[in-house]
Amino acid sequence: MATNKALWGIVTAAAVGAVIGLLFAPDEGNKTRKKIKKKTNSLASDLIDALEKSKEKAASAAGTIKEKGQQYKDEAIDTAEQYVDDANEEIEKYR
Rank of each mutant, 00 (worst) to 15 (best):
Ser45Arg: 06
Asn41Cys: 02
Gln70Thr: 01
Ala50Met: 01
Tyr72Met: 08
Ala61Tyr: 03
Ser45Leu: 07
Ala59Ile: 14
Lys38Glu: 13
Gln70Trp: 12
Lys73Gly: 00
Ala61Cys: 03
Lys68Gln: 09
Ser45Phe: 03
Glu67His: 05
Glu52Gly: 07
Gly69His: 04
Lys53Thr: 14
Leu43Phe: 11
Lys57Arg: 08
Ala61Gly: 02
Gly63Lys: 04
Ser42Tyr: 06
Lys53Tyr: 04
Lys66Trp: 02
Asn41Leu: 12
Glu56Phe: 01
Glu67Pro: 02
Ala59Gly: 01
Asp49Ala: 12
Gln70Gly: 00
Ala50Asn: 05
Leu47Glu: 08
Lys55Gly: 10
Lys73Gln: 08
Ile36Trp: 01
Lys68Trp: 03
Ser54Asp: 10
Ser54Arg: 05
Lys73His: 12
Lys35Pro: 01
Lys68Glu: 05
Asp46Lys: 07
Lys55Phe: 09
Ala61Leu: 13
Asp74Thr: 11
Asp46Pro: 01
Lys35Gln: 13
Lys37Ala: 14
Lys66Ser: 06
Leu43Pro: 04
Thr40Ser: 12
Thr64Tyr: 04
Asn41Gly: 10
Lys53Asn: 11
Lys35Ile: 08
Glu75Lys: 12
Ile36Asp: 05
Thr64Arg: 01
Lys34Phe: 13
Asp46Ile: 08
Gln70Asn: 10
Ala61Arg: 07
Lys39Thr: 14
Lys66Leu: 00
Ala61Phe: 01
Gln71Thr: 09
Tyr72Phe: 11
Ser42Leu: 13
Lys66Asn: 06
Gln71Phe: 08
Lys55Ile: 15
Tyr72Ser: 12
Glu52Ala: 07
Ala59Leu: 12
Ser45Tyr: 03
Ala58Leu: 08
Ser60His: 04
Ile48Val: 15
Ala62Met: 06
Lys34Gln: 14
Asp74Lys: 13
Ala50Trp: 03
Glu56Leu: 05
Ile65Thr: 11
Gly63Ala: 00
Leu51Pro: 03
Asp74Glu: 14
Lys57Thr: 06
Lys73Thr: 00
Glu52Gln: 05
Lys35Met: 09
Ser42Cys: 08
Ile48Trp: 09
Asp74Cys: 10
Glu75Leu: 14
Leu51Arg: 10
Ala59Pro: 04
Leu47Ala: 10
Thr64Leu: 06
Gly69Glu: 05
Asp74Trp: 06
Tyr72Glu: 15
Lys55Met: 13
Lys39His: 13
Glu67Gln: 11
Ile48Asp: 13
Ser45Gly: 05
Lys66Pro: 00
Asp49Arg: 01
Leu51Ser: 09
Ala44Lys: 08
Ser42Lys: 14
Asp46Met: 07
Lys53His: 11
Ser42Thr: 13
Lys39Trp: 09
Lys55Cys: 12
Lys37Gln: 15
Ala61Trp: 01
Ser42Arg: 07
Gln70Ile: 04
Lys57Ser: 01
Ile36Cys: 00
Ala59Arg: 11
Asp46Cys: 02
Ser60Leu: 00
Gly63Arg: 03
Asp74Gln: 13
Lys73Ile: 01
Ala44Met: 09
Glu67Cys: 00
Lys57Asp: 13
Asp49Asn: 10
Ser45Thr: 10
Lys66Ile: 00
Ser60Thr: 14
Ala44Glu: 15
Lys53Cys: 01
Ala58Pro: 07
Ala62Ser: 08
Leu43Cys: 08
Ala50Lys: 09
Leu47Gln: 02
Leu43Met: 13
Ala59Ser: 09
Gln70Val: 01
Glu56Ser: 06
Glu52Met: 06
Gln70Glu: 14
Leu43Gln: 04
Ser54Leu: 07
